[in-house]
Amino acid sequence: MDKLKLKALYTDLRPDLDQVEAELTASVQSDSALLTEASLHLLQAGGKRIRPVFVLLAAKFGEFSIDRIKHVAVPVELIHMASLVHDDVIDDADTRRGRPTVKAEWDNRMAMYTGDFLFSKAIASLSRVESTYAHQLLSDTMVELCLGEIEQVEDKRLYQLTVKEYLKRIRRKTALLISVSCELGALAADVDEKDRIHLRNFGYYVGMSFQIVDDILDIVSTDEMLGKPAGSDLLLGNITLPVVYARDEDGVKELLARIQRGDTTEQTRHELLAALRKSKGLEQAKRVSNLYLEKAMNEIKHLPKSSAKRSLQNIALFMSKRKF
């Protein structure tokens, strides 16, 4: 239901999104039937297409041409998809969005090749955009994304992770790609530089808020709503903001110690979720998420009045209140 509500917020973009979707499907075709099948398996699993939506909406503030803009919207989504495939290998995840992951459907090797294939297709798609800055921006973002993933691996079971370290990690892992989606959309549509900067900042702050909410939902949502076991990230040792704030509370502290010793049973998962749901960590994390949302809204105030501006505001608000 929530996903349907979100899609209703950008109904006006449906014709443009349909073209982006068709271009995504075309872009993952290859001489290898297996590679194409694995890529389509991920693509057809659905998803909110948040990054392409931000590309399209940012471009609405300039000279919008879907024939040009789609070659920016496609690569950011492909990069996002590639990172998910690699994530599932690192986390040994069998399901995503309620469907088997590529690594579960095939194997780790096939998943890694699929992720690499999607990264290369992203670069190929952006090559149609004649902007050195756009290419540099996206390549820098890919590097930062990889660094963020490596940091998460290095920080596993680092139960003394600081708030600053957590924020740095999600900046690289999530916020930068959403920020770049806004900036590239504006760039491809020749949006005024001042407005382009506001859109870039808006995307960054929304991305930070989005990831914190995602980490909250990993604790408060059900397995069915998430399409994967709730709290699975915590059992893997991925420490998130609610845990950082709650880790010294009675109950939580003891359960984290058990996980650190290798106790990752279903019972431990349920006990940890129950303890975190009663902790003060959730409210503190929500406050940080709301602070980033306020910053995003302050950025967007400077943009010209338009239906695109209203859509950005509505989507940002919805993302901060979502339950999936």
Rank of each mutant, 00 (worst) to 15 (best):
D2L: 13
K7Y: 09
T11W: 15
L13P: 08
P15T: 13
D16P: 06
Q19F: 07
V20F: 07
E23F: 05
D31P: 06
S32V: 11
S32M: 10
S32G: 07
L34Q: 12
G46S: 08
R49H: 09
V53K: 04
F54V: 12
F54Q: 04
L57W: 00
A58C: 11
A59W: 07
K60G: 03
K60W: 07
K60R: 14
G62R: 04
I66Q: 01
D67F: 05
R68V: 11
K70I: 05
K70D: 03
V72F: 04
V72I: 14
V76E: 01
L78M: 06
L78W: 01
H80L: 06
H86W: 00
V89W: 00
I90P: 00
A93P: 02
A93L: 06
T95S: 05
G98T: 06
R99V: 08
T101Y: 03
E105N: 00
M112I: 12
T114Y: 00
F117Y: 07
S120V: 09
S120E: 09
K121G: 03
A122T: 05
I123N: 05
S127Q: 13
V129P: 02
V129I: 15
S139N: 09
L145N: 02
L147W: 05
L147S: 07
L147E: 12
E151A: 12
V153F: 01
E154N: 11
E154L: 14
K156M: 15
L158F: 09
Y159A: 10
K168E: 12
K168I: 05
K173F: 04
A175T: 11
A175F: 08
L176D: 03
L177R: 01
C182Q: 10
A186W: 06
A186V: 08
H198C: 07
L199I: 06
L199K: 03
R200W: 05
R200F: 10
F202P: 01
F202D: 03
S209E: 05
I212V: 11
I212K: 04
D215H: 06
D215W: 07
I216P: 00
L217T: 02
D218P: 00
E224K: 12
E224C: 09
M225C: 00
L226A: 03
K228M: 10
P229G: 11
A230Q: 07
D233T: 02
L234F: 04
L236D: 14
G237Y: 02
T240M: 06
L241C: 08
P242S: 02
V243R: 05
V243I: 15
V244S: 05
V244A: 10
E249W: 05
E249C: 07
D250I: 09
G251Y: 08
L255F: 08
A257P: 02
Q260L: 06
T264R: 13
T265A: 10
E266L: 10
T268R: 07
H270E: 15
L272M: 15
A274F: 10
K278Q: 14
E283D: 15
A285H: 10
R287F: 13
L291K: 15
L291T: 14
E294W: 11
K301D: 14
H302L: 13
S307T: 15
K309D: 14
K309E: 15
K309F: 13
S311H: 12
A316L: 14
F318A: 06
M319R: 04
R322I: 10
K323P: 03
